[in-house]
């Protein structure tokens, strides 16, 4: 194999890391029983924060850290509201998505119009490999945590039947706050990699919008399983990373190549639902259900 081909194969690293981390973060949060529809809004905010923070600190790592911190704040807010109050998970998620779209523009657009520079991660094969290894290690850790530890058992219990979990001594609120924190930390990290490593271009309004939904579909089509998500994230990342190849070889219009990931997202969700995968990797039973005891302390 020649070096050029290796570069093309490994060049998918940053895109893979961005989508994979976002998808497993989303899956981890949903395992705790909270329907996560705010993902795209927070992803968009994460991109904006990563851009601004990296620019001001002069290093891309600062951008990732800032995006992580901001995303965690959103995750804690969503987990708290959806667990403590009898409100619709869908409604709070979508509302926060809109807030996110708006805030992202407020954060990044004024800066962009004054400073014409981008700070990003270095781009070379070594960095690409580092991104792949880093994200897979995180994925394995998440899988281990969910399937082998007490915390993981508590998260899954909160997602399957929070009332039963609660009577067995699980503090549902605390568990969901932890899941929200960890899940959104990964979503923030993924958003920062999306901008700082995969598409480091001068910021334009709406950057990252829609990518959260692709991560949503990546996670759903792998049944929220961190290890299986490696496969679905890789397929999507290759599809996105090689969109210019698709354009060139197949002679597709640029608008159609931009549409393909979204079509693939729909197809992936259908495939998951019509195959036995659905039964083997069923969604958490209490996903999106309001958790409310008749009278309770806030």
């Amino acid at each position: 194999m020649n070096a050029g081909l290796i570069a093309i194969i490994l060049g998918v690293g940053p895109a893979f890391a961005a989508y994979y981390l976002t998808a497993i973060g989303h899956g981890l949060f949903e395992k705790s029983g909270i329907l996560n529809l705010a993902i795209d809004g927070v992803f968009t905010v994460g991109v904006a924060v990563a851009y601004v923070a990296a620019l001001f600190a002069g290093t891309a790592v600062a951008g990732s850290v800032a995006a992580l911190v901001v995303a965690v704040a959103f995750g804690l807010l969503i987990a708290y509201l959806a667990t403590k109050l009898p409100i619709s998970h869908g409604a709070i998620g979508l509302s926060i998505m809109f807030v996110g779209y708006g805030l992202a523009a407020l954060i990044a657009v004024p800066i962009r119009s004054q400073i014409n520079a981008v700070v990003s991660y270095p781009m070379n094969v070594g960095v690409d490999i580092a991104f792949i290894i880093f994200s897979i290690v995180i994925g394995v850790l998440v899988h281990y945590m969910l399937s082998r530890t007490k915390l993981g058992a508590a998260i899954r219990a909160a997602g399957e039947n929070p009332h039963a979990a609660s009577s067995l001594g699980v503090n549902v609120l605390r568990v969901r706050l932890i899941a929200g924190m960890l899940g959104y930390a990964l979503i923030g990290l993924g958003a920062s990699f999306y901008f700082l490593a995969y598409t480091p271009a001068p910021y334009s309004e709406g950057m990252g919008m829609g990518q959260g939904w692709i991560a949503f579909a990546i996670s759903l089509s792998a049944g929220r399983h961190p290890i299986l998500t490696i496969l679905s994230a890789l397929v999507f990342a290759e599809l996105l990373y090689n969109k210019f190849v698709l354009q060139g070889y197949l002679g597709l219009s640029v608008h159609i190549t931009k549409m393909i990931p979204y079509l693939a997202a729909l197809v992936a969700m259908v495939i998951f639902m019509v195959t036995p995968l659905k039964r083997k990797l069923a969604p958490p039973r209490a996903l999106g259900k309001i958790y409310f005891k008749e009278e309770r302390t806030v």
Binding site: G102, L103, A105, L106, P110, R112, S113, Q114, E205
Partner: peptide
């Protein structure tokens, strides 16, 4: 401070989102 570059769509998102 460059906020004039924010689109009306984004401003509407802020209002309706909150």
């Amino acid at each position: 401070g460059g906020s004039a570059m924010i689109s009306s769509g984004a401003l509407t998102y802020v209002l309706i989102g909150f």
